[in-house]
């Protein structure tokens, strides 16, 4: 569904993600936990490019949505002028070494020292262009397949609940007003808020807003849903109603990626858990095993604080 390849994210001098990779398969419910500042929200937001990774690639199915990262394609590195120069020098210096050994050494060196910064010549550019031509997809099209739910709900304050839900399907999927409204009412029915269709977001409680935000994303028929701490901004008594909707969604087979502090929910619903710390994925396990016996010291420390 989504595959994230070796992404780095810097905010100025602050390095938030330091080489994170993840393959998300259809039907998985991935839970991302970790201490605050560990980069888990940034990681999630990189999946639909709300944050653009500094390095690395994000693929949605077979479509590349970030610019090509030359370091992830050995052919591209090999087509570079730097590689050619290094190879020539290395062959003369170490004639006894095999071609493969030299090749991997040089590729490693170029990657490690970030040597592809300068203009790299025709063959290199042609390869990059070719990869882009064959794989690149406009991010707006990819986002239509990726639903997202935010911590702060982010319902459109100037639109009614109904318009919040129908806007994107009408503009992007060409649904008529009536079709979109039918769909919206069906979804509102599902979360028991049909009577709020004409209300404005300010008139709803936090829990109601978040449930609407979930179905607003669902109205686009996404293939995968991203949740960025969906219950963190809620009053405690409203957490349950939102988790119920998410549970139902999970049971219906939706592919989900969830950043959360709700450990109970993570254990119950998650099929795979990523524990992040300091911009990296430190541990990756099924949630039940992770909570029963975390392997790394950092995970043990974290769990001892939150459980």
């Amino acid at each position: 569904m989504i595959s994230v390849k070796n992404i780095y994210k810097n905010f100025g001098d602050l390095r938030v993600l330091k080489g994170v990779s993840c393959e998300i398969e259809k039907g998985e419910k991935i839970v991302i936990i970790g201490p605050s500042g560990s980069g888990k929200s940034t990681f999630l937001r990189c999946m639909n490019l709300l944050e653009e990774p500094t390095y690395g690639e994000v693929w949605v199915d077979d479509d590349l949505v970030t610019p090509v990262d030359p370091y992830l394609h050995f052919d591209v590195i090999r087509a570079s002028r730097t590689y050619a120069e290094k190879m020539l020098a290395a062959r003369q210096a170490n004639p006894e070494k095999s071609e493969e050994a030299l090749d991997s050494e040089i590729i490693w060196e170029i990657k490690e020292k970030d040597l592809l910064k300068k203009h790299e010549g025709g063959a290199y550019n042609a390869l990059i262009k070719q990869i882009e031509r064959e794989n690149s997809l406009n991010i707006n099209l990819a986002r239509q397949r990726i639903g997202m739910v935010f911590q702060q709900f982010n319902l459109f304050n100037n639109l009614t609940i109904l318009d919040n839900i129908t806007l994107a399907p009408m503009k992007l999927k060409g649904l008529s007003k009536a079709q979109a409204a039918d769909k919206a009412y069906a979804l509102l029915e599902r979360i028991g808020l049909k009577d709020k269709a004409a209300a404005f977001p300010q008139q709803l409680s936090g829990g109601q807003k978040q449930r609407v935000a979930i179905i607003r994303a669902l109205a686009m028929d996404p293939e995968i849903m991203l949740f960025d701490e969906p219950t963190s901004a809620l009053d405690p008594e409203m957490v349950g109603e939102v988790l119920d909707v998410m549970k139902e969604l999970a049971d219906s087979g939706m592919t989900m990626v969830l950043v959360t502090h709700e450990m109970g929910f993570a254990r119950e619903v998650g099929t795979r858990l990523l524990f992040m710390d300091d911009g990296q994925i430190v541990e990756e396990q099924p949630p039940k095993e992770f909570f029963a016996n975390p392997k790394t010291a950092r995970a043990q420390d974290f769990l001892s604080k939150v459980l």
Partner: peptide, 21 residues
């Protein structure tokens, strides 16, 4: 609130469309 723009973009709406609507 910048979240409004993010929500629009996350749904797949373009920058101009989100601005305008």
């Amino acid at each position: 609130d910048p979240g409004q723009m993010e929500a629009g973009r996350a749904l797949g709406l373009g920058y101009g469309m989100t601005m305008w609507k």
